[in-house]
Design a protein around this nucleic acid. Structure first.
Lengths: 258, 258
DNA sequence: ACAAAAGTGTTGTCTTTACACCCATGG
DNA sequence: CCATGGGTGTAAAGACAACACTTTTGT
């Protein structure tokens, strides 16, 4: 959807191809520069940022739609993607939009009865991606992107700030019973790297000596016989996820006792 | 919606009042006879059972719709209700229904272009209710109800078996970081009662002596100076949830360490 | 007095936390 | 040789798991 013609076509006839009343929004977490970032798109002709999102094709399974939308933006295939909440309470998600409001927001004239003006619930997914492998694609409605630190988010369009917050909460809870990191880190990583990643996600300090003990005890990572030169300091060893144990933990959960 | 006329009206004009393409399904957990039960409704003129559900009014916030639907069925106001997943992947949730299929299932003739035949995603909520306070109301589409043990579910309509399974999984995970029980038990309960409840939900045995220690240590329950006669045996003491601590734990989560 | 269920405390084991010194590397 | 960051082990405290006998009550 890159030309104005395609966009107008989408506005006018999109409801034939897509399900109205429901959309998907994606919180795409990437990890870079020791910070947890999320991908934001700038809405064309406007100074506001929003989460990437899209609609579900009429006969497309929901999960597949989420993967497609994500892939359209990031050109990534292999990633961790998870539904976390469906939003339908905020004022914006309760009422219809007027054509005027829509024109103000997106700079596009639509007819008063356009399907895009109807009330639309949003199904939230979050993804964990390897920042370095992502190439972002924008489309007609968006003219820029940025990776924004989660602690420095601007005011986003719609209720997207709430969506991000809920995604973060879910991620933080989840890290307690699922391994996380496989999709955020390169294949080989150092202990300090994964350590800072966990600290960043949880938003608190973790003991530098106890933390790797835990991961090793759980069998989630294994030490490689390689080191990575990092400049003027001692070279840290490289580690790798033990994919077998990792996947097992993903399925069974790391259950904490009662 | 109790008469055929109302039902036909709903089929024909429901889309003016309700959002099409999205519905809510409720897994209502009740606790009774030392078993975790869920509420099932029998679809009229049919031998199949289904979860209670309904549609969202055009300008009704999502959460409010879930509470309304639940209340219409159980006549309960104060309860724990939580969204857990939105379903849109199973074959039934991907394609449209034919008028014939609909007639077979619900014994009601609809026009081929009825809004009810369109693809409909389902937003799943689960509720924890005090079984003894529930009075179930059926409507035109349903002619019976039962509280069914979760381990003895029959084949349900649509993909509702999957929905129940996911709800159970969510509940079991949740019990590890949120207190559960306030809405499943009467105000005053005995230790054996809450003990069996937890065992039932988790599907495993919990030590009879360690279990209350934990709850008391967390400050979630407090002992009352009352006992309940239970026939030919020693009278157990009554306990109550410490609402203040309970609510705090609900918000902050009982976090297990890393 | 007997049967059935409730009440209660201790100990060993495991898990978690806290903590500081030496080593490698490049400039 | 210095500055910076990486690597590593131990001990104390707390949490968890396992376990059995006594009390109450109604019949």
């Amino acid at each position: 959807m890159n030309t104005e013609e395609e966009a107008l076509n989408f506005v006018k006839y999109g409801h034939k191809q897509y399900l109205p009343h429901v959309a998907i929004d994606c919180v795409i977490f990437g990890y870079y520069d020791q910070q947890l970032k999320i991908l934001l798109l700038r809405v064309k002709g406007h100074n506001s940022w929003a989460l990437p999102g899209g609609f579900i094709q009429r006969r497309e399974p929901l999960t597949q739609a989420a993967y497609r939308i994500l892939q359209e933006r990031t050109n990534l295939k292999d990633l961790f993607l998870q539904q976390f909440h469906t939003f339908g309470d905020s004022p914006f998600r309760v009422k219809e939009t007027s054509a005027k409001e829509f024109a103000d927001k997106f700079g596009l004239e639509v007819e008063e009865n356009s399907w895009l003006l109807e009330r639309t619930l949003s199904i939230g997914y979050f993804a964990l991606v390897d920042y370095s492998k992502v190439t972002v694609t924008t489309d007609f409605f968006t003219d820029a992107y940025q990776w924004c630190d989660v602690s420095e988010l601007p005011d986003l369009l719609f209720e997207h700030n709430d969506v991000v917050e809920k995604a973060l909460l879910t991620l933080r809870l989840q890290i307690y019973h699922q391994p996380i990191g496989y999709n955020l880190l390169p294949e080989k990583f150092t202990l300090p790297e994964i350590h800072v990643l966990y600290e960043t996600i949880l938003g608190k300090e973790l003991d530098r000596r106890n933390f790797p003990k835990k991961l090793l005890a759980l069998g989630l990572i294994k030490k490689l016989n390689e080191q990575r030169p990092i400049g003027a300091h001692r070279s840290p060893f490289l580690y790798q996820f033990d994919k077998e144990n990792y996947d097992k933990a993903l399925q069974e959960g790391i259950v904490h006792a009662y």
